[in-house]
Each structure stands twice: as structure tokens, then as C-alpha cells.
């Protein structure tokens, strides 16, 4: 084991931290917004909407992220009508392809987390809200949303960790984030173990931070029944 190589790689890989975080944060925000839309569609009375939402969640959760990333980057680029359309401005860029793939992926998982959060709220609460004369919108805003979010905190912190880990896969579409840099170092040092240990430490630390932060958040919002 070459410890100085681990240290050198560690410093080089840190240069990709900003880009990794940019991709992760952007995808999480966009994915969260998209997931709300998906949940609303899923719960909507319109069969078309709920079917679409169901199918979307099913297909995304049932296929590996790697397939999704390849599909958006290489699959769509195969067609000239896409390359000639305005979409190409975004799809031409590996960065945006990576963000789109991760956004789509996390939106499906997050939608399921929110949905089960909503399901966990007891019927009695909604009924009492109605009894207190709250409108449907008020019930949604004051009772359902805050409770569903609180219910979802542990599962969502897990999803964030999964996303931090998943972001490493965008290195295969030429994005030089942390794993991309690690691969590049390996291509000249031929020492995969040392380099990936260095990268692994950074990812582990990021996930550790998330765990700590969310433990505090959970404590703050937990209510004893």
C-alpha cells in the first residue's frame, strides 16, 4: 500500500469536490420539485395522470441508474431530430445530461418517499381538520404537508446519501467530478486501490456529514406522541 499516493490522489480528487457538489445539489433540488409534481399526478383523480406517474416511478425504480445515464447521453443523441432540435443545447453538454439523469432518478424515489409519508398520516387528523372547518387547501398546507415532510425526513436523508453515491456514475459520460479525476489518476499510476481509497474517504465523509445534519433535523422536528 502506497500511502503517499493515497495522499496525493486525495488532494487531486478534492479538486473535483465542487463539481460533484454542484451536480448533487442541483439534481436534488430539481428532483424534489419534480417529485412533488409526480406525487400530485399520482394522487390525482385523472386516470391518465396517475397512470403516467405510476409508470414513470415503476420504470425508473426498476432499472439501474447506469442505464438511465447512458440512455440520456448516448441513446437520445443517436437521433438527428434530437440533435437538430433546441433540446440539443442542453443535451449536448455532459454536465446537463448527468444532472437530468440524476434528477429523473431521484424524483421517482422521492415521490415514493413523500407518498408513503402522506399515507402514514392518520385519517382521524384529516377528519378533525375538516371538523374544525378547514378547507381542503388549508388541510393540505397546514396538516398534510408538514406532517408528510416530517415523516419523510429519515427516508429522504437516505435518498441524499444514495444520490451522493450515485453522482460518481456521471464520470462515465466524461464529467471530471471526483470519480472522473480518480479514474484519470489511475490511467497513469495503474494503482486503482490507492486512488479509490482516497476517493472513498471523501464520499464517506460527505455521507457522514449528511447523517449528522439530518440527525439534528430529525431531533428538532420530532414530536412525541
Amino acid at each position: 500500500m502506497n500511502f503517499s499516493l493515497i495522499f496525493e490522489s486525495f488532494l487531486k480528487i478534492l479538486n473535483g469536490l465542487a463539481l460533484s457538489l454542484e451536480i448533487i445539489v442541483l439534481s436534488l433540488i430539481l428532483g424534489f420539485l419534480a417529485s412533488i409534481l409526480i406525487v400530485l399526478m399520482r394522487l390525482s383523480k385523472n386516470i391518465l395522470f396517475s397512470r403516467f406517474s405510476r409508470g414513470f416511478i415503476f420504470s425508473i425504480r426498476g432499472t439501474p441508474l447506469l442505464v438511465q445515464i447512458y440512455f440520456i447521453y448516448y441513446g437520445l443523441a443517436q437521433f438527428s431530430f434530437i440533435r437538430d432540435s433546441f433540446l440539443w443545447i442542453i443535451l449536448k453538454e455532459p454536465f446537463w445530461c448527468g444532472v437530468i439523469a440524476l434528477t429523473i432518478n431521484t424524483s421517482a424515489y422521492t415521490a415514493e418517499i413523500i407518498r408513503s409519508g402522506l399515507n402514514a398520516i392518520s385519517k382521524g387528523q384529516i377528519e378533525s381538520a375538516t371538523a374544525f372547518g378547514m378547507t381542503k387547501f388549508q388541510t393540505f398546507k397546514r396538516i398534510l404537508i408538514p406532517q408528510a415532510l416530517r415523516q419523510s425526513i429519515p427516508a429522504y436523508s437516505n435518498e441524499i446519501i444514495l444520490m451522493i453515491k450515485s453522482s460518481s456514475l456521471v464520470s462515465i459520460i466524461t464529467i471530471m467530478e471526483m470519480t472522473g479525476i480518480a479514474r484519470k489518476i489511475i490511467s497513469t499510476t495503474f494503482a486503482p486501490i490507492e486512488v479509490f481509497i482516497a476517493a472513498g474517504i471523501i464520499y464517506l465523509f460527505l455521507n457522514y456529514l449528511i447523517t449528522i445534519i439530518f440527525r439534528q433535523v430529525e431531533k428538532r422536528y420530532s414530536v412525541s406522541y
Partner: peptide
């Protein structure tokens, strides 16, 4: 510089015009 893990990927992206 953009690096690919296989020549096939490079070819595909060359064909795609990236």
C-alpha cells in the same frame, strides 16, 4: 480534453457531434 472508457463511446460521441 474529453476522455472515454472505450473507443466505441468516443465514436458514438463523435457521431453525435459533441
Amino acid at each position: 480534453l474529453k476522455t472515454y472508457s472505450t473507443q466505441d463511446d468516443l465514436n458514438l460521441d463523435m457521431g453525435a457531434g459533441r
